[in-house]
């Protein structure tokens, strides 16, 4: 793609989300969403690969009805109440439908099915954008709507956690696994949204922090399926040693960053007496933990089953770890001691 065009789309990508984030008006927010969608589609189809083209088409077809429904509901709301403010929506049906549409946009259960499908057609960096930045705008809108319909939110959240866990169990493609991981994390955010929006925001931030290096590592080594993971050890041994920690951090194991949101969310729920919900979310977190564990097992604990002639290619062609990766790996593993600070910043 022409660099000028690319930079234009990237700018549009940024500005679309920023327009949504800064608008209090449904029309503006919708416009931001549309700009966002329009900007990402050429980026998705950048390679003109059949899978990429397919993914771009699918992505467009998914986002278009979702945005249309949002606009439809916003207009309905405007007609019924006479105002366009986002956080003053008071009519129930439009809110629920908007929630579903936003969930569809973000790829949450039960309307999650497009996300693994589309993500499978992308290269990993675009996938990273799709699973982090693209979710910011709808996520912000949901955050604005949080005050009503707790049941819908909790149902969406719980279903996402469960579906994300179960869906990822049977996958061999890293991109699909990461898509399901994204679904699960979104679920965690939505489950707690009703009770503590700050916690949701924090979870989102930490999810982005944690998923960033994973995508980057996989991109750097071009490991699209589980089979290729053991090669990490020969290419980048350091990363190979670190990736289990990263993945388990995503899964939410204690000494790592990923534990913070899970800990605080479950603590919050227990404080509110929602023991059943806390138990369900905590237990269904185990499913995703299982596939993270499997990834780590294959990537660094075992050797590649196929005999490779070059055991230490990193000696011949030293791969320096990119700076961005270096800076993201550290916070995605070691933020737990800073929990009080994060707490005071976000909560």
């Amino acid at each position: 793609m022409n660099p000028i065009t690319l930079s234009m789309f990237t700018t549009a990508l940024l500005s679309g989300t920023l327009i949504t984030l800064s608008s209090t008006n449904w029309l503006m927010a919708w416009m931001g969403l549309e700009i966002n969608t329009m900007a990402i589609i050429p980026i998705i189809a950048r390679k003109h690969h059949p899978r990429a083209t397919e993914a771009a088409t699918k992505y467009f077809l998914i986002q278009a009805p979702a945005a249309a429904t949002i606009l439809f509901c916003a207009i309905t709301n405007a007609w019924m109440t006479g105002q366009w403010e986002i956080n003053q929506m008071s009519t129930d049906l439009p809110i629920i439908l908007i929630l579903i549409s936003l969930a569809f946009k973000m790829g949450m259960a039960p309307v999650h099915s497009w996300l693994p499908d589309v993500l499978q057609g992308l290269d990993l960096m675009t996938g990273l954008v799709l699973s982090t930045w693209q979710k910011l705008a709808p996520f912000y809108l949901i955050l604005q709507l949080h005050s009503t319909h707790s049941l819908t939110l909790i149902l969406l959240g719980t279903m996402s956690i469960l579906v994300g866990g179960w869906g990822g169990l049977n996958q061999t493609q890293t991109r699909k696994i990461l898509a399901y991981s994204s679904i699960t994390h979104m679920g965690w955010m939505l489950v707690i949204l009703q009770f503590s929006p700050e916690l949701t925001l924090m979870t989102f931030t930490l999810y982005v922090t944690m998923t960033l290096p994973v995508f980057m590592i996989l991109h750097q080594n071009n490991t699209l399926s589980i089979n290729k993971l053991p090669i990490l050890a020969t290419h980048t041994p350091t990363i190979s040693a670190l990736i289990p920690l990263l993945l388990l951090s995503l899964g939410g194991l204690p000494p790592l960053t990923g534990f913070i949101p899970k800990w605080l969310i479950i603590q919050k729920m227990s404080h509110l007496g929602l023991f059943g919900l806390a138990t369900i979310t905590a237990l269904s977190g185990l499913f995703s933990l299982y596939f993270y564990l499997r990834l780590s097992y294959i990537s660094s604990i075992t050797m590649s089953p196929s005999s490779n002639l070059t055991t230490a290619t990193w000696r011949l062609t030293p791969n320096s770890i990119p700076l961005g990766l270096k800076t993201t790996i550290v916070p995605s593993m070691m933020l737990l001691p800073l929990t009080p600070m994060i707490n005071s910043l976000l909560l």
Partner: peptide, 30 residues
């Protein structure tokens, strides 16, 4: 709002152009 709307339409146009341009890779077709 109008400006943004216009920008949006322009962007759509460019996006469509970007997707469809070129001899060998016609509209969205693999």
């Amino acid at each position: 709002l109008l400006l943004i709307g216009g920008w949006m339409l322009l962007l759509t146009l460019i996006a469509v152009l970007e997707l469809c341009r070129g001899n060998s890779r016609g509209a969205l077709r693999a």
